[in-house]
Design a protein around this nucleic acid. Structure first.
Length: 283
DNA sequence: ACCAGCTCCTGCTTGC
DNA sequence: TGCAAGCAGGAGCTGG
């Protein structure tokens, strides 16, 4: 579900409630998500101050004052929802826990942040901040697509000799980190490149054009607060609205939005996942 | 080394 | 209306 723009939107939404603030208490309501929670997670978080709320790829990074960092991944259906501090007189009106509310952060001052994840593909781990970059979930990630390390030369080099479809190459988090099914489809359409084409067989100048296409797609999506299809919500519970700006994703059978193109958007399946593209203007 | 397919889990939509 | 199949934004693992 959440790709880079959604995770970045959640991160920004969590900042007022969490950044620089103390975690009073953490409720852990089940033993695991995708993997078991780290040992004594609740105790290790309780009383800590969150010095910084960061993001790497699709991972939220909560840096604590105790030398540890909490890594949070939302998987396909994860949410981090903020409840403002309830008034004491109305404390009984706090919404009852949903059965998929797996972890609840009770912040000093009364705000609550709830991690909810029906499909439980999400994950949390708590690790020494000094060793964060070496963590197995983060160590092999490629460059951030909105950062300086991601540029035209990097992508050309990463694609060289690759026989996999460019769609699969862009989903490979080692090549570029943070893209998922939606934004790969959208960026390839913006760049006029067929998702079916082998990554190593695209002319260099066209690979280079993919870099600004990816950046613009992600920038626009972040500006719109991400894409809400079914599960994703911002930290305040509101929906993103970039789904209204999709050019191809989920739009099979509709006219291609490219200026002057008379093609029709098609859905095909690549390595078991839906790909949306215009066969007329994506070559 | 590379790459396609399977898998984890729940819930919503679609078709008979 | 009921029920089963199909599908979903991620990504690690297996095996060819």
């Amino acid at each position: 579900m959440p790709e880079l723009p959604e995770v970045e939107t959640v991160r920004r939404g969590l900042e007022p409630a969490m950044a620089g603030r103390i975690v009073d208490r953490v409720e852990v309501r089940r033993p695991d998500l995708r993997w078991p929670f780290p040992p004594r997670m609740a105790e290790r978080l309780s009383g800590a101050r969150i010095d910084h709320l960061g993001r790497r790829s699709k991972y939220l990074l909560l840096t604590l004052d105790r030398g540890e960092t909490l890594i949070v991944h939302l998987g396909m259906s994860g949410r981090m929802l903020v409840d403002a501090a309830p008034l004491a007189a109305h404390a009984h009106e706090i919404a009852p826990a949903d059965r998929h509310d797996h972890v609840v952060f009770h912040m000093a001052g009364g705000a609550r942040v709830t991690f909810n994840d029906p499909r439980r593909f999400g994950a949390m781990d708590l690790v020494a901040t000094a060793a964060l970059d070496a963590h197995w979930l983060l160590a092999r990630l490629g460059p951030e697509p909105l950062g300086n390390a991601f540029d035209e030369d990097h992508l050309v080099a990463a694609f060289r000799g690759r026989r996999m479809p460019v769609k699969a190459a862009l989903l490979d988090q080692r090549i570029v980190a943070g893209l998922g099914n939606i934004y790969v489809c959208e960026a390839l359409h913006r760049a006029g490149i067929s998702p079916l084409r082998k990554a190593g067989r695209i002319a260099a100048h066209r690979v280079r054009a993919l870099v600004p296409a990816i950046r613009a797609t992600l920038d626009d999506a972040i500006r719109a607060g991400g894409s809400s299809l079914r599960d994703y919500r911002r930290a305040d519970g509101a929906m993103g609205y970039f789904q209204h700006d999709f050019r191809v994703y989920g739009r099979a059978g509709r006219p291609c939005p490219t200026q002057g193109c008379t093609g029709t958007v098609r859905r095909v399946v690549q390595s078991g996942r839906s790909t949306f593209h215009c066969p007329a203007c994506q070559r």
